[in-house]
């Protein structure tokens, strides 16, 4: 089982010279991405190591482990670095998005429900385009819901299809 492709995790290196392939990000680059784009302080990830499983799929694991390691999962999927624009995962934003101070778009609950159902919405936003943290106050609790792609006046839901739902209405908050 250990030698099957897809079970190998390589630790994201501290130094560029230790990269497993030329597109592999370094730890510093991952930390810089979350800080530069979302204002998430580097110290938030202080106890985490980053791992790559398959090119461009970065995981965050609280703790350390020998590298490479052959397991079925190691922490949480964090980030896709394959494309031109790096994309944090929904689960990563639900876990770390609370710390975001930039590129956070706050939705009212009705719009948040539409977002979670997978709908794209015309919404005004005068910040950067690209992947945003989508947040909402749920019964006064500020909550990072996931990732949205803002382009040209529209917030596109990138909630994974398998996660999309018609969530029960929060009556009292609207």
């Amino acid at each position: 089982m250990a030698d099957q492709p897809g079970t190998r995790f390589d630790r994201v290196p501290a130094n560029p010279v230790d990269r497993a392939h030329e597109d592999q990000p370094t730890r510093r680059e991952v930390l810089s991405f979350f800080f530069d784009r979302y204002g998430i302080d580097r110290s938030v990830f202080g106890e985490y190591t980053f791992w790559e499983r398959g090119k461009g799929k970065i995981w965050a694991f609280r703790g350390t482990a020998p590298t490479p390691i052959a397991v079925e999962g190691l922490g949480l999927t964090l980030l896709r670095t394959g494309g031109r624009h790096w994309k944090p995962t929904t689960n990563a934003i639900q876990t770390f998005g609370f710390h975001a101070t930039r590129n956070v778009i706050e939705l009212r609950e009705a719009a948040a429900r539409a977002y979670w159902a997978g709908e794209d919405q015309e919404i005004e936003w005068d910040g950067d385009w690209g992947y945003l943290v989508v947040s909402c106050r749920l019964h006064e609790k500020p909550t990072a819901l996931g990732v949205g792609l803002y382009i040209n006046g529209e917030l596109r839901s990138v909630v994974p299809k398998s996660r999309q739902r018609d969530v029960l209405v929060l009556d009292r908050d609207d």
Partner: peptide, 24 residues
């Protein structure tokens, strides 16, 4: 594990009767 945001979880696939700590 992902939905609940568990970051200190390692997932392995072994027969528990002969479980090996090999990867760790």
């Amino acid at each position: 594990g992902e939905r609940l945001g568990i970051t200190n979880l390692a997932v392995t696939r072994q027969d528990g009767r002969v479980f090996s700590v090999g990867p760790f």
